[in-house]
């Protein structure tokens, strides 16, 4: 039982990380219609900026704004410099350009920081594990869950209750009308892109002490993020949240429990090999099933 609960928490933790990335990706797609493959690079930028500042100053508190600011600024620069010119173009052109950005950022990071992974210490206050009754769980991972959920809450408030959110929602469904009403749509686009980048940077800087900060770390998680966005419904933040938690929990549970289940049915090593294979496919199967039942995802943004 304790093991199940612990794995569910692990799943939720992966889920909120995916949500932070997927929210930006889905907003950018929903509002601007741009498929931004370089979103993973923004995650990497956030992680590297935070790692660099943490190493230089020894303070994780300073690393947080550094990671956020770097990701948001780079994101807005990308929008201004590259993506802005692609709104009217085909998705294929967008994919090509943003894929080029991935290569660019990866190489830039190699030039600046080298190929060897960077190391960020968990802030001492958050190190260690806390006893939750049945089992103990790393404090830092609990913090990630808390920050992720808080961010999700803030994002819903922003989108549902504020003027900016109203424009974002209107922009997603009635782009031409928003423009006709005199809203500076270009500025809105830059702000939304920056917001998406900020969220990716937040995910990146929180991942730093957990994973290794390394070149190409964004692409590893980007594919899962796309799965989340597709499951949730393109352009829907609610969908991204539901999809992220679903993918996080399903992925973790398959990895955790499938080998044990299969071992009851066949010999050890065969079960492990099969379980490894099936759990790697798991989220993609989930995506296929969701798309079969609801071709537009769980919470489609455009009716």
């Amino acid at each position: 039982m304790a093991l199940v609960l612990e794995q569910v928490l692990n799943g939720v933790q992966l889920g909120v990380m995916l949500f932070l990335l997927a929210a930006g990706l889905t907003l950018i797609f929903g509002i601007m219609g741009v498929i931004n493959l370089a979103h993973g690079s923004l995650y990497m930028v956030g992680a590297y900026a935070a790692a660099f500042v943490a190493q230089a100053t020894g303070s994780f508190l300073l690393a947080i704004p550094a990671g956020l600011a770097a990701a948001a600024l780079v994101g807005m620069a990308i929008e201004y410099g590259v993506v802005r010119h692609l709104y009217a173009r085909d998705h294929l052109d967008q994919v090509l350009a943003t894929f080029g950005l991935i290569l660019f950022f990866n190489q830039l990071v190699v030039l600046l920081f080298g190929r060897q992974p960077m190391f960020v210490q968990i802030p001492p206050a958050l190190a260690g594990a806390v006893d939750l009754g049945f089992f103990s769980y790393p404090v830092y991972r609990l913090c990630i869950i808390a920050v992720g959920l808080a961010t999700a809450g803030a994002l819903f408030w922003l989108i549902q209750r504020t003027r900016l959110g109203m424009l974002v929602r209107a922009g997603a469904t009635h782009r031409d009308m928003v423009q006709a009403l005199g809203v500076d749509i270009r500025l809105l686009y830059t702000v939304v892109f920056g917001l998406g980048a900020l969220l990716a940077g937040l995910a990146g800087l929180m991942a730093g002490p957990l994973l290794s900060v390394q070149v190409g770390m964004g692409e590893q998680i980007l594919i899962l993020t796309f799965v989340v966005v597709v499951i949730g419904g393109l352009g829907s933040v609610t969908g991204a949240f539901a999809g992220a938690l679903l993918v996080g929990v399903v992925d973790t549970s398959l990895r955790a429990f499938l080998p044990g289940l299969l071992r009851g049915l066949m010999t050890g090593s065969e079960a492990d090999a099969l379980a490894g294979g099936v759990s790697a496919m798991g989220v993609y199967l989930l995506m296929a099933i969701v798309l079969l039942v609801r071709p537009k995802g769980l919470f489609p943004a455009h009716g």
């Binding site: 390394q214 190409g216 770390m217």
Partner: peptide, 8 residues
């Protein structure tokens, strides 16, 4: 392999 996590 020069790029990605295994780059070093």
């Amino acid at each position: 392999t020069l790029s990605g996590p295994g780059g070093y």
